[in-house]
Design a binder for these strands. Structure first.
Length: 386
DNA sequence: TGGGGTTAT
DNA sequence: ATAACCC
């Protein structure tokens, strides 16, 4: 649970109905009371079966059919038609087909269009207030406190009648797997249990930070600010599979992931300064474990990032394969089930202006001082920090 | 369980 | 570098 939630989807009187004029068809909105200390108005926009909706917009013929979005052998989400027929999120493809033989499946492993639509939604909301926090691809929190206060002032000056806004808090937590287990061990299995549990003991068991936060949440109290997300802090691409057991195989997969990532980074315009490789090793029945190695991206590669794409591939793959061999002993048998490449530590472009020192020290802008130890030394000293 | 993301330690 | 959390 990200923050205390209020009202069931669509139950708030102001919720937009499915075909409400002026409303996007798939929005639910909720007012979240902000706790006792200060009064805020936060709208939680939660898009239902987002991937399926994107697919139905792409291909309207799908609208009338039970539709599932498939990643590997999972139906990760589905539309309402499919839900009516018994399909659930994260259901096995086999089970889903059994439940609903007419189910239409589209592959949703490439997140590009979902990601693009997701940011369109966020940008739309940012027109109301720049304070929009994203949660995943399909949820946004918008802090409308200022907007509402201004409107109230205006309304009250027009006609000073009583105006109240209220939400309805309910306790429906899903707190997180690990914490749930720890709480259960303490005999805490319901929100009420958590509300009435000794704060001191809880702090000793879970640490003061987690303890105080979740206990406040159990009362529907959440005063955490809505933090504007802004552009993403990282880009990653992953692929899971049944088995990858050779270095060549791994290299091919890594090249695929990297190629897509380079396109994305190119479009973003900022430059990543760190690269990370993540693997998941096969283990018979163990839950979830990933390992990663990361390193700074060599600066000569960073410089080539905005312009060319292909002369970057080879040196970048070399870096990644070094990380790979650092994690995986390729002389021994291995069995991987996931590979992921992540670009992070994104920095804005150097906005080198003509006539400044930076301008002449930026290889892509300046035709002079391309080589020579002196200019390189200067670049290393001054450019990276901006 | 996919293919992503974030923040804290 | 990993753990834990979110969707």
């Amino acid at each position: 649970m990200k923050r205390a939630e209020a009202g069931e989807a669509g139950s708030w009187p102001g919720a937009l109905g499915p075909e409400e004029p002026g409303g996007l068809p798939w929005f639910h909105d909720q007012v979240v009371p902000a706790g006792s200390s200060s009064s805020r108005v936060i709208v939680h926009v939660d898009l239902d079966c987002f991937y399926a909706q994107v697919e139905m917009i792409s291909n309207p013929e799908l609208k009338s059919k039970p539709l599932g979005v498939q990643q590997k052998y999972l139906v990760v989400t589905c539309n309402y038609e499919a839900r009516k027929l018994g399909v659930k999120k994260l259901m096995n493809v086999r089970d889903a087909k059994e439940k609903c033989p007419q189910l239409v499946l589209v592959n949703g492993e490439d997140l590009t269009r979902y990601r693009e639509m997701s940011y369109k939604v966020t940008e739309l909301l940012e027109e109301f207030s720049p304070v929009v926090e994203r949660l995943g691809f399909d949820e946004n929190f918008v802090d409308l406190t200022e907007m509402v206060e201004k409107r109230l002032e205006q309304l009250q000056s027009d006609e000073p009648s009583a105006l109240t806004v209220s939400g309805h808090v309910y306790g429906n937590q899903r707190i997180g797997y690990k914490t749930t287990k720890r709480l259960e061990a303490l005999g805490i299995s319901s929100v009420r249990d958590l509300q009435t549990f000794s704060s001191k003991i809880l702090e000793k068991e879970l640490g003061i930070s987690v303890a105080q936060r979740i206990q406040k949440l159990s009362f529907g109290e959440d005063n955490s600010p809505v933090t504007p997300s802004g552009p993403p802090q990282s880009f990653s691409e992953e692929d899971s599979f049944k088995k990858c057991s050779s270095e060549v195989e791994a290299k091919n997969k890594i090249e695929e992931l990297l190629a897509s990532l380079l396109n994305r980074v190119c479009q973003d315009g900022r430059k990543p300064h760190t690269i990370r490789l993540i693997i998941r090793r096969y283990s018979s029945e163990k839950h979830y474990s990933r390992e990663s190695r990361q390193c700074p991206i060599p600066s000569h590669i960073i410089q080539k990032l905005g312009i060319g794409n292909y002369d970057v591939m080879t040196p970048m793959v070399d870096v990644l394969m070094k990380l790979f061999r650092n994690m995986v002993n390729v002389k021994m048998p291995f069995h991987l089930t996931l590979l992921s490449v992540c670009f992070c530590n994104l920095k804005a472009l150097n906005t080198a202006k003509k006539g400044t020192i930076d301008y002449y020290l930026t290889p892509s802008l300046s035709t002079t001082s391309r080589s020579g130890k002196h200019s390189f030394k200067m670049k290393d000293t001054h450019m990276e920090d901006f």
